[in-house]
Design a protein around this nucleic acid. Structure first.
Length: 333
DNA sequence: CGAATTTGACCGGCGC
DNA sequence: GCGCCGGTCAAATTCG
């Protein structure tokens, strides 16, 4: 992947190289400063050495500044792209809802219906109630639009047609509290509450698309008021994912839709997790049934999936650079 | 036996 | 006021 190589290039090279060659660099620099080429830095006066160190420190600070600026620019670009994408998605869904409005009797259910049935909407449509000018949303959910501005986002997940369970893997822990057959859709709608934190207000509705039963539509209401459960925590609980079929086991937790924008990432990660599992399966078949080979492949796949995750690489880089800085501070001061 | 799911009953909003 | 409908509750059931 391109992104992973970029991460390694920018963060690791810039940070670690600086600190991996401090002795050589210092020796060279201090030698040129003192004018004694070929002599070791041992002969340098302490003051000069301190000066060299200060120079080095300044250089690092300047570099850090540059990196921060680059990061800011990157973030800005990312945000603008993101907002454009959200805009496009909203426009698309609004247009199609308006087109369908002429043909259906109830305005309110029409809009919902159209969103659910649109097979193009693989991904999500996140909406803050205030953002849309449509009176429909206020008609549909007058309570939320009034006071607490519950964020509503939607995620569509394609599943295999034979799989009739209402499973949407989003990494959170959900407890099913109801199921209903709605009027405009023959498949039942399942209702879930976030059960990871007792006070978490987030709810989720999962229903198959009426037109394409292989598409699961998950509607999230509200925002999680707790941290995302770690994989370890999830592995402790049997229902780490949305489970509508009794106690089916579903692995591979992935980051959740924290905001209305995140679901895309979630789905992408889920997809990559899926392809990863398939790749691992393929390789396992190729490798035969040797347990050692299987284990090695699994380790490789896990490592690959971790390095592909920008969050992980960022955290790793931060941890490494933090340690390196600490280390050099201890050494130098 | 405890926890999670299922499912019918109930409640409130909305349109007629 | 009545009926329809979506959402929620809670007792019953299921499963590890």
């Amino acid at each position: 992947m391109e992104s992973s190589t970029n991460w390694v290039d920018t963060t690791l090279d810039l940070n670690i190289n600086l600190f991996h060659r401090p002795n050589k660099a210092l020796k060279r620099e201090s030698a040129t400063i003192s004018g004694e080429v070929g002599e070791s830095e041992v002969k340098l006066p302490v003051k000069q050495e301190a000066g060299v160190l200060m120079e080095e420190l300044n250089r690092i600070i300047a570099e850090n500044k540059k990196l921060t600026e680059l990061l800011t620019i990157l973030c800005e670009n990312y945000n603008s792209l993101q907002s454009k994408f959200v805009e496009l998605v909203n426009k698309n869904s609004e247009n199609e809802a308006a087109a369908a409005a002429a043909t259906l009797i109830s305005k309110k259910r029409k809009a919902e219906c159209e969103d659910y049935n649109n097979p193009n909407m693989i991904g999500f449509s996140g909406r803050a109630e205030s953002s849309s000018s449509d009176e429909e949303s206020s008609k549909i959910r007058p309570k939320e639009s009034n006071n607490n501005k519950a964020k509503i986002s939607r995620a569509c997940v394609r599943t295999s047609p034979s799989d009739n369970s209402l499973i949407v893997r989003d990494g959170y822990q959900w407890r099913k509290y109801g199921q209903k057959v709605t009027r405009d859709n023959p498949s039942p709608r399942a209702y879930f509450k976030c059960s990871f934190a007792p006070t978490c207000p987030v709810k989720k509705k999962v229903q198959r698309s009426a037109e394409d039963p292989s598409i699961l539509v998950a509607t999230y209401e509200g925002e999680h008021n707790h941290a995302h459960p770690s994989p370890a925590e999830l592995s402790l609980s049997p229902n780490s994912n949305t489970i509508a079929t009794p106690r089916s086991s579903a692995p591979a937790p992935s980051p959740p839709p924290k905001s209305s924008i995140t679901p895309t990432v979630t789905l992408e990660l889920m997809q990559s997790a899926g392809t990863l599992a398939m790749a691992a399966e393929d390789q396992t078949k190729k490798a035969g049934d040797s347990p050692a080979a299987i284990q090695q492949i699994l380790v490789q796949q896990m490592a690959a999936s971790l390095t592909r995750d920008p969050n992980f690489t960022a955290a790793l880089a931060a941890a490494i650079s933090g340690r390196v800085v600490d280390h050099t501070r201890i050494q130098k001061w």
